[in-house]
Design a protein around this nucleic acid. Structure first.
Length: 460
DNA sequence: AAACCGGGCCAC
DNA sequence: AAACGTGGCCCGGTTT
């Protein structure tokens, strides 16, 4: 690890941080062991039943026949890849990093083979079984103690393991419920989750100070994801109810990938496959997500994009506009920091840490943002840990997920604790670090007393 | 038998 | 020119 010469503060942050995180590790999170055992049994049965059906299909029999093994292993993506792309001669829609045909979820879906969709169901359920199994293996007297490290990540973020507290399913509703229903506060308490809203975007803005981005951040009426949705999908007027999914598509399929350094060819493909319905390079009429009552594919054809090629050209123009016009200073900052790295061999974070060694262009702008954003969270975590002990709260900090803090709160303290959290995260932090030139905001979710983590809902 | 690697998938 | 950033964990399959 390297720390820039001027920064004793950086050194101190990690030392204070690891102690505060260590105290959270000691507290841990309660797990419902009987629930885990029960649910694993159910999952095992569901997986077995789908597998039995799968083994009774012509697809499986053909796969077995073509194999030189006594029994094909359904879990072997190597065997599946050989069968699909060598024996059956399907054309892979995607290649792996090493250049072989991919058998990931997206690739298998594109093949549109019903048997493979069944297989995908078992893979999802197996993943959930694994998550629960990790909880089970790691629990001691019904409590897990996820570890948090500050020495593993190249960008100076944290990592978590045994079990990993930072990748518990949440986006898929069923997966979220199955996994998070296993996690509980101490008896009589309730879980509270505090998230910084758009933390990395805000911290990036502190570095590049792009005029347009600062306007987006400072004007609550404005919304860059909405604006990009309008541009990408050629909407006349934006209707939040009707176009919510398109806003999400613009955010996760264009804006964030662009910020991380992706480019238009990937963006176009992902947008088309995930939200439209474009298996063979052509929008499939009457399919895809709905805009009110019109399928997205029909809308895209109506506004002049009949196939992936035309849509890609459209996204290419939008990408150019995005960096040349909309976020011009952001783009210039990216170029400047890449030049600085090439000249000096390192990049310094605003929090005093230094990144050096072999770095790619994208690394030079991603590391300082990712690291400093996490350090905001860590600073807040340290302050809360100190106040909690000084004031002898019954409430405890129990974990952290990059831009979020999780607490186990005594109900009597909820109101006071949330007030302190708000002050520390949104007022004290920007006062302590003068390079933070944008307002910081948080959202809080709370669970019922004695309720599981799956039961969280927005506070206030 | 252990170590390693590729590929997949969950999170931010 | 280049072409999505950071992790942990699981599994199959190969090398040591």
């Amino acid at each position: 690890m390297t720390i820039s010469p001027q920064s004793y503060a950086a050194y101190q942050l990690l030392h204070d941080g690891i102690l505060a995180l260590g105290r959270a590790e000691q507290v841990g999170i309660r797990v419902d062991v009987p629930y885990i055992e029960r649910t694993q049994t159910e999952l095992t049965a569901r997986i077995a039943s789908i597998r039995d059906e799968f083994k009774d299909t012509p697809f499986y029999r053909e796969w077995q026949k073509a194999s030189d093994k006594d029994d094909v292993n359904i879990d072997s993506h190597v065997q599946l890849r050989d069968f699909l792309y060598d024996v059956k001669q399907y054309t892979p829609t995607k290649l792996t990093a090493k250049g072989s045909g991919s058998t990931d979820k997206e690739s298998l879906k594109q093949l549109n083979i019903p048997e493979l969709n069944r297989l995908l169901e078992t893979k999802k359920l197996k993943k959930l079984w694994d998550v629960l199994n990790d909880f089970y293996n790691e629990q001691v007297n019904g409590v897990i103690h996820p570890f948090f490290s500050l020495n593993n990540v190249i960008s100076y973020r944290s990592s978590s393991d045994s079990p990993n507290f930072q990748n518990i399913p949440i986006r898929d509703e069923e997966s979220m419920n199955i996994c998070r229903n296993a996690l509980y506060p101490r008896p009589g308490h309730q879980l509270l989750e505090v998230d910084y809203s758009g933390l990395e975007v805000h911290i990036a803005a502190c570095y590049h100070q792009d005029r347009t981005m600062l306007k987006y951040i400072n004007n609550p009426e404005s919304d860059m994801h909405r604006d990009m949705a309008i541009q990408i999908f050629k909407l006349d007027a934006y209707d939040d109810h009707k176009h919510k999914t398109l806003r999400k598509a613009a955010k996760n399929g264009f804006v964030f990938p662009q910020f991380y350094g992706d480019y238009y060819v990937n963006c176009a493909k992902n947008l088309a496959c995930n939200w439209g319905q474009l298996p063979q390079g052509r929008w499939q009429e009457g399919q895809g997500i709905l805009l009110g009552d019109i399928p997205l594919a029909d809308h895209m054809i109506a506004v002049g994009f009949r196939n992936l090629k035309q849509f890609t050209a459209h996204i290419e123009r939008i990408e150019r506009d995005f960096w040349d016009n909309r976020f011009k200073q952001y783009a210039r900052w990216k170029r400047r920091w890449w030049e600085t790295y090439q000249r000096t061999g390192y990049i310094d974070l605003y929090t005093g840490f230094r990144c050096q060694g072999v770095m790619r262009r994208n690394d030079c702008v991603n590391y300082p943002v990712q690291g400093a954003a996490f350090h905001c969270l860590l600073w807040s975590f340290i302050q809360l840990d100190r106040i909690m002990r000084e004031e002898q709260w019954k409430t405890r900090l129990i974990g952290q997920i990059h831009d979020a803090i999780v607490l186990d709160v005594h109900p009597d303290e909820l109101e006071y604790v949330t007030k302190v959290i708000h002050r520390v995260t949104c007022d004290d932090l920007p006062r302590a670090w003068d390079w933070i030139i944008v307002p910081l905001e948080i959202e809080m979710d709370v669970c019922p007393v004695d309720g599981s983590w799956a039961q969280k809902s927005k506070l206030k």
